[in-house]
Write a protein that binds this DNA or RNA. Sequence first.
DNA 1: TAGTGGTCTAGACCACTCC
DNA 2: GAGTGGTCTAGACCACTAA
Lengths: 247, 247
Amino acid sequence: MSPLPTSTKLDHRLPRYHRVREALSAEIAAWRWKPEEAIPSETEIAEAHRVSIGTVRKAIDSLVADGVLERFQGKGTFVRRPDFQSSFFRFFRFANVDGPVRVPVSRILKREVTTMSAAVAAALKLEVGAAALRFSRLRLIDERPLVLEDIWLPYERFKALLAIDTREFGDLLYPLYEQYCGVMVASAQETLSAEAVSAKNARLLALVAGEPVIVIERVALSADRQPLEWRQSRGPASEFRYQVEIR
Amino acid sequence: MSPLPTSTKLDHRLPRYHRVREALSAEIAAWRWKPEEAIPSETEIAEAHRVSIGTVRKAIDSLVADGVLERFQGKGTFVRRPDFQSSFFRFFRFANVDGPVRVPVSRILKREVTTMSAAVAAALKLEVGAAALRFSRLRLIDERPLVLEDIWLPYERFKALLAIDTREFGDLLYPLYEQYCGVMVASAQETLSAEAVSAKNARLLALVAGEPVIVIERVALSADRQPLEWRQSRGPASEFRYQVEIR
DNA sequence: TAGTGGTCTAGACCACTCC
DNA sequence: GAGTGGTCTAGACCACTAA
């Protein structure tokens, strides 16, 4: 294995396993290994960093705990692609869950270049009035509206999306962010609430005005925890379950 | 240190650190050490279980990760008391959050001895029709109804609660469980949904029938993950926020 | 100073995967 | 059979806490 670039100045006061962890995550962020690709074996990493295998294991342990890597006995350790598709189905439960798991069909209702409102700018840690890309999107299963989304992105980082016809966006946005904007969503913070649906949203969701809808506000973050996207989703409460463990 | 009781039949096929973990969490659940109390040192535990210190560390690591124990360098390892009061305020947000944090006042509306319904029995891993203790409780802030709760407990473990006048219950139940039933809630699983409020619940919550309410189903667990309590809470959606991090 | 957890080593053997 | 991660050992030294 070639010598590992210690890209950032590594503080010698930090524990070794911590320095190994930083070195590995820096290399992952720099795409030395693509998602789904195996990183070198624990023995190789230990030799490269001149530490014992136990120290490497501790570094990898913490990256696995943070969902950055995945281990498979006998196969290797792999860069994990955060699977928001499956998380979608972890959080949403539908009346007819017997059949195969399906991604809802997405329909972009609107795409515009605008400026950040105060609330969105705060969530994305940008200036109020900064240039923004905004999407309105409807997600359906069996032609039945399921989720209505209002999505805000910083213009500079995502302007490449303007070049694509919205009818060719496909059903998932995060793969597009990766492909066209070189940006990978690594985690997200969500805030749930509920409200009586407005007349306008009721029309789009095929509900009666006043029926309860769940509202989810999501800030999507990169691996180094920079906010990338703000999104607000609304769906009929009757179709919705959300599970959490408190400790 | 006295020999540790290996209370449950421990499967010798399991990894040793796993067996040590099970033994420790069983003892915590059995109140061998009270919350905020130090457990024996890693060296002592290693000797008692005849494993190396590294194996003990791995067992304790996982209990710390699960929020059951807390470590302090130079001081020891302590049984953690989950702070459900503060978690209540992490999850709920009220219109007037400027003032000091307050626990809602609790009013027990009803206490009865009954039998487990199918759904509750399944959640608590008991037989349908097993004896149950059931409470209906309303929680208020400034005389304003905030949460309506339906609480189910296994009769045997909690029958001591029948001896206390419900007007003397106080505003939090988990301290009562600890004091009178020798049971500590260590974690909980919650499922969120929303619905249009029924006429009956609307009356109790001072809402108009049909307004959206959040529904939280909670199963409270002991340190060794035995289900202790099932509870369903309903509150006006307008008063409610819930925050989660996805990875 | 004695005792605690925090870090680290340099091996060992096992279970699993793939060829 | 070769290579991987999973478990485990029996120590070591360090940093921190409390008496």
